[in-house]
Amino acid sequence: MSEILRAENIHKYFGKLHVLKGVSLSIQKGEVVVIIGPSGSGKSTFLRCINHLEEYQEGKIYFEGKLVNPKKDVNKLRTRIGMVFQHFNLFPHLKVIENLTLAPVKVLGMDEKEAIKKAENLLDRVGLLDKKDVYPAKLSGGQQQRVAIARALMMDPDIMLFDEPTSALDPELVYEVLSVMKDLASSGMTMIVVTHEMGFAKEVANRVMFMDEGKILEEAPPEEFFTSPKNERTKEFLDRILGI
């Protein structure tokens, strides 16, 4: 195993509000890390700092051992880091297949035909090949999120970030998205997932992290994390969320 990404001591302020207070994370190739925590704990913000959608005021991020320069390397870095958003953020003016091919063609200079072929393969993988010529508005939330995952995979990312990917979905649609994510994890994709899906965390994560008030309070493999949490706040949170 080799380290693919490392965040060191990330501090983030929104004005005077100190939202990340020295968050660090190291993730190995092929690892799945799930971050949980109450809303407002900074977990989404931290995820967005990793691909520099948010600026951070202090700290360092290394990608494949190299220090990332937030002023210079960002576009390149983002082609290697896929991101899936809570609200899917598909491009509504483009058909599903065009949503997938836009970035590889424009950013990577991929041949259009090759991109279409690749897109069809990925759509097939998420079970939506028959929707390729449809506009996103015609799809259910679950379908849209699967398209969004396929869109991110088009860039052949080395790591995928998921920012509460199922939080905006109707309960009966959560399953189809999680199952795509499970497939992805078992194919060896490195993933950082911010979620409230404890079942997913138990089943898929290599490590679970608990964040509260801008800090990582606990970090453990899921068996240990869910059965014998050490931190008082973690216990409280788990009790509430698991309804014990």
Binding site: R78, T79, I81, F85, N89, F91, R151, M155
Partner: peptide
């Protein structure tokens, strides 16, 4: 989110 999605794809 549209801008962020575009940027997150390296645009």
């Amino acid at each position: 989110g549209q801008y962020e999605a575009a940027r997150s794809l390296g645009m």
